[in-house]
Design a protein around this nucleic acid. Structure first.
Length: 152
DNA sequence: GCCAACGTTGGC
DNA sequence: GCCAACGTTGGC
């Protein structure tokens, strides 16, 4: 079992939104970065744990936990001219963008702010905390996962 | 709203 | 294949 962190702007899609979805499940569409795409397409497995991170929020931080319930498949929004995520270069016969389905597990009792994460011993290596890190999907180690869950 | 960091695009 | 220009991300 692997662990991941996925970012979402709560003004666009928050952990509460995920909890309110039918089946509490959402296709994680719109990711247009190759590194993130590769992780969703090739590496994520059913049952993997996801830290749901609120970016561009006040404050930014980890809001709760989700899980992968469907492994990588082509992102349909890339083929939809009406979608803001439309990419004319993504050919349905050779899709460029992939996504996974994510299901709500639980919201933390409190948001764990980015500020606080920076000060926790054992998290120094987290991709999230590296300077200039902008990836919206990134791996989390089992150790980092348990440290973070203990912060709640 | 600013801007550093970084990815992508496209001319050459 | 280089790299300048441009666009985006996301914390502050």
């Amino acid at each position: 079992m692997a662990y991941w962190l996925m970012k979402s702007e709560p003004d666009v899609f928050s952990i509460e939104d995920l909890a309110n979805r039918p089946q509490q499940t959402e296709p994680w569409d719109g990711v247009r970065n190759y590194q993130a795409r590769n992780m969703m397409r090739d590496e994520m497995a059913e049952g993997d744990g996801v830290l749901f991170y609120h970016s561009n929020a006040k404050p930014p931080g980890i809001a709760g936990i989700a899980e992968i319930v469907r492994t990588g498949y082509p992102d349909p929004t890339a083929f939809d001219p009406a979608s803001k995520y439309f990419d004319p270069k993504s050919d349905p016969n050779n899709p460029r963008w992939y996504l996974v389905d994510v299901r709500f597990v639980r919201q933390f009792r409190r948001l764990i702010p980015l500020d606080e994460l920076r000060q926790v011993a054992g998290l120094e290596g987290m991709a999230l905390l590296q300077k200039g890190s902008r990836l919206s999907v990134m791996p989390v180690s089992a150790e980092e996962w348990s440290i973070i869950l203990a912060l709640e």
